[in-house]
Nucleic acid binder design. Sequence first.
DNA 1: GGGACTGTATGGTTTCCATCGAACACTCTG
DNA 2: CAGAGTGTTCGATGGAAACCATACAGTCCC
Lengths: 112, 112
Amino acid sequence: MAREAGRGASHRAAPVHARLDDVTVQEALAALADPVRLTLVRELASSDDWTRSCGSFDVPVGKPALSHHFAALRAAGLVEQRDEGARRVNRLRREEFDARFPGLLALVLRGD
Amino acid sequence: MAREAGRGASHRAAPVHARLDDVTVQEALAALADPVRLTLVRELASSDDWTRSCGSFDVPVGKPALSHHFAALRAAGLVEQRDEGARRVNRLRREEFDARFPGLLALVLRGD
DNA sequence: GGGACTGTATGGTTTCCATCGAACACTCTG
DNA sequence: CAGAGTGTTCGATGGAAACCATACAGTCCC
């Protein structure tokens, strides 16, 4: 069987990402109104793109809950995910999200 | 008994308002992430200050729920209330809230 | 292939919050 | 004072969401 060379294609279902135009203000606010998700976004904002896997965040929840939170962040257009081997690495969709909801990201990243 | 002239003093417990500095971003977001409260804020934004009583809003909830929503908006520093006779009239705390959370109000008032 | 690792799916529990009905408090008017 | 109008409080209920333990699906390394 031919196998992709180098960074091989994943045989897992690729993560589904939201179109920013389909995200409502209310959904964006609801996504950010959760303490765990807020921590994830902030921690992600202080890291380089594609450097943080899902399990590398310091939040007091188990793996299933964490997975659910990332799905919520994806649905809100806040994060993009890519499979890299066994792990799934993340990126904050700064510019796209800021274009859709100007200033909102800056607001939650300014530490209170 | 001496009675206040004109707009008399209320014998009701005055509404308690939040200090904007005590409101966290997360609380502000949670307050705005509700569809009913979002409607209240938007409708209030398109009205002059102190012209809208609590019961004058077009939301599909009963009086008790409405009362709780206004309490939530007060706690988030979004509205100020004043008793005027039998009615309780409202005002959107535009500038104070915008000073605390720049751009957030503008964001939710821009119709999607 | 065997095992460690990473993330997702499933099922069930708990917690939180929006809501309502009913009752109460206050204001104005007749 | 009686009654209508406005808003809050109380108690209870229903549903949504967050959470966990377990089980499962890929991926990597030996």
